[in-house]
Design a protein around this nucleic acid. Sequence first.
RNA 1: GGACACCUCCUAUA
DNA 2: TATAGGAGGTGTCC
Lengths: 158, 158
Amino acid sequence: MINIYTDGACRGNQNTFNMGGWGFVLTDKATGKARHCWGHEANTTNNRMEMTAAIKALHAIRNRSRSEVTVYSDSNLMVKGMTEWLSGWKAKGWKNSGKKPVENKDLWVQLEELSALHNVTWQHVKGHNGNAGNELADQLANRGADGQQGKQDFVGGM
Amino acid sequence: MINIYTDGACRGNQNTFNMGGWGFVLTDKATGKARHCWGHEANTTNNRMEMTAAIKALHAIRNRSRSEVTVYSDSNLMVKGMTEWLSGWKAKGWKNSGKKPVENKDLWVQLEELSALHNVTWQHVKGHNGNAGNELADQLANRGADGQQGKQDFVGGM
RNA sequence: GGACACCUCCUAUA
DNA sequence: TATAGGAGGTGTCC
C-alpha cells in the first residue's frame, strides 16, 4: 500500500514570466518509510504543475513490483481526467467535449504510462481541508514555486 | 473612417427564461470621438444579440453622410452572412443550403438596409484574443445581459 | 463532417 | 477580480 499526496502551485500570470512548483509526499505502509520531493519549472500553468507532481511521484516507484497505489490530489481536473475522461479522449483523437484539442496531452500520456505499472486509485481531496498529507504537499509545491532548490531530478526507487 | 466593435451575450438556455445583452463601441477617426452603448432583451439567442449589436451601431449613424465604416465582430455567422451568404439567400427565397428557412430574417433585412447607407466592411475578429475593441464590446454586452440599465433606446446620430 | 459564437457547471491557481 | 483546465449543452451557417 503506497499513498501519494500531490500538489501544484503557480505564481504570476499569463504573458509575464511565472514560476510553478510541484510537490509530493509518498508513504509506504509496508516499510513505514516516507519521502517528500519538490521542484520548480518556469513559464508553466497551475494545471501542468498539478499533473507534474503526480508524474514525479509515480516515476519514483516505476521500478517497484506492481503495488496498490492511491494518489490524493486536490486537482479535480487530474482526478477526473484519469478516471473518467481519458478513455474518451483517446477514442476521439484527443478532442475534448468542445471538439478542441485536449491540453497537456504530453502529461496525460505520461500519467497513463506510469499509472499502468501499478493498481492506481485516484482520489480527489478538498484543498486546505486540514488533511495532513495534502497540507505537506502544498507546502512542498510552494517551496518549489518560491524557487527553492528541490529534488527536481529525483529518479530513484524508494 | 468609422470603426465599430460589436458583441452579443446570452445567459441561460432552452425553455427556461433567458436574458441577452448587446454592446458596441463606435469610434470616429475624423472627430476623434467614441461612444459605447449597450442594452438587453429577454428570451432571445446569442446570434440574435450579435446581430442586434451591429444593427444598433449602424442605426446610430444612419443619418450620417455616406462613410467608410468597418464593423468588427467575433460572430462568424454575421460576418459570413453579410459578405458571402446574403445574396444567395435572397436569390433562393431565404432558404439556406439545407433548403430550410434562414433564421432571423428580420434582422438580416435590417442589417442589409442599414449597411447600404454606407460603405461597410465586415471584419471577423477572434473573441477573447486581447483585441481591445472586442474586449470592451464584450464587457458592454455582458453588462446588458446582467440586466444593467443601458442605452437601449439609443437612436440619435453622433 | 467543419466553423464561429453563446452559455450552465466543476476544481484549482494567483 | 483574473487565468488554467475539464464536462455538459444551444444558436446558426457551410
